[in-house]
Design a protein around this nucleic acid. Structure first.
Lengths: 231, 231
DNA sequence: CATACTTGGATTGTATGCAATTTTCTATTT
DNA sequence: AAATAGAAAATTGCATACAATCCAAGTATG
């Protein structure tokens, strides 16, 4: 959103992308030295990028211990999803109060891209699904609402990386189509409802996950394996 | 919320406070050197603090040109106030769905402080008024909602510093009392309405300011004076 | 054998130096 | 006198050196 020096932004973007795409898993340590080497810049640059990511909630910086990819707890995850519901509800409310024709046009163009990438490129598909929500927010014309949604969508990606088994099942393209339809019909209540159940579905798939291996200890995991062998 | 090294935070807090209290006016240049000298730290520390403030929207960093206190436009100001309405409405909605007794108790304690500081300490009075809204958000138990409200309240302080003539008329203590009363009555709609008109009042006092010297050019200002003399 | 202590390596915290860029001031020209 | 060009001063961008802290492995001790 703002414009710090070019190289800092470049490192920031790369790290952010890597975290969102789950290439860097939650908990991964992010040493300034090695990252700097990778990108061919000094620790100074890396540090600035990490500070920004920390402010955004994607990484966790602890004094004298360095940075690592954030590991949101279940409680934080639910909190973030609730906030997302609130923000995206506002997006719907605003969009339905505007001239919906150019909005629907832009959304349909994006949807076409999503459908196009569907079977082919998994990573691209996931990214486009997230960007659909960001596009919605941008179409409200409110920079601050857009930036909040942008931030919270990436935090949700991080949550999915942490808790969901199947990262690709994140967003359903058909559900996006239904949201567009509700907007096109100028049906504010309907659009908000559609969005609500869409997000609720994502949240459920991510967090109502009965076996959360990371929250268990080793004994629990092994005991499950032992039972399997016995059965 | 997060925890970067102690000295960075210290400088960050000081600058933030100074901006919010209007000691540093919008547009003021913030050179790394002189700030570092003032606080007895190096440019490195100052820079980190400035990056954080930039991410928060309180300062504006432009490449090779350094940092200055942000100067939100009227459009940005309205955008931010709209967002604030949305967030604080959510705060009200949540609070009214909870056990209101401990909440009301905490709020009344804060209100007492506000009343106590009313005539005596202007700066303290302003700070407490802002903190009332932050306290409301914290009482929802949602860290992320609280952090968003915290951020947006400080941005609103910056806006008031930029546009309002009388900084002290910011928040009415009686209005805070009415909001508490609505919460105590468990009246969600009423509480949201109270909050809405309260914030709307603040926004109006700040932005419906007919003479905004900074948005006009010199000719306009002078023409007004000429008319006065002629009349 | 387990526990506590010590030491070495790795990583972060901070200051500072140098290069690059911007800004300001001055001198020259029209 | 105004405008412009150019040089000097100030400020940021970045890298790096050194100090402080943390972590792990190994050693001594009960």
């Amino acid at each position: 959103m703002h414009k710090p020096p070019k190289r800092t932004i470049s490192v920031y973007d790369s790290l952010r992308q890597a975290i969102i795409e789950q290439a860097l898993k939650p908990g991964t340590k992010l040493p300034e030295d090695s990252i700097g080497e990778t990108f061919g810049v000094s620790r100074t640059i890396v540090r600035n990028a990490l500070v920004r990511l920390d402010a955004e909630g994607l990484v966790d910086i602890r004094p004298n211990r360095g940075a690592s990819v954030a590991q949101p707890t279940i409680e934080e995850a639910n909190d973030i999803f609730d906030m997302r519901q609130c923000l995206e509800r506002e997006v719907m409310r605003r969009l339905c109060g505007m001239d919906t024709r150019p909005i629907v046009k832009a959304l349909k163009a994006h949807l076409a891209e999503e459908q196009n990438a569907l079977g082919k490129d998994g990573t691209r598909s996931i990214r486009l699904a997230g960007e659909f929500h960001i596009l919605l927010a941008e179409l409200t014309g409110s920079p601050i609402l857009a930036s909040y949604v942008n931030e919270i969508v990436s935090r949700c990606s991080l949550i999915l990386a942490r808790f969901a088994q199947v990262h690709s099942a994140e967003c359903g393209v058909e559900e996006h189509a239904e949201i567009i339809a509700a907007i096109a019909a100028g049906d504010a209540e309907g659009a908000m409802g559609q969005m609500h159940s869409h997000l609720h579905g994502v949240q459920d798939r991510a967090l109502l996950n009965p076996e959360d291996e990371r929250a268990e200890n080793v004994a629990d995991i092994l005991s499950r394996y032992r039972l399997k062998e016995a059965g």
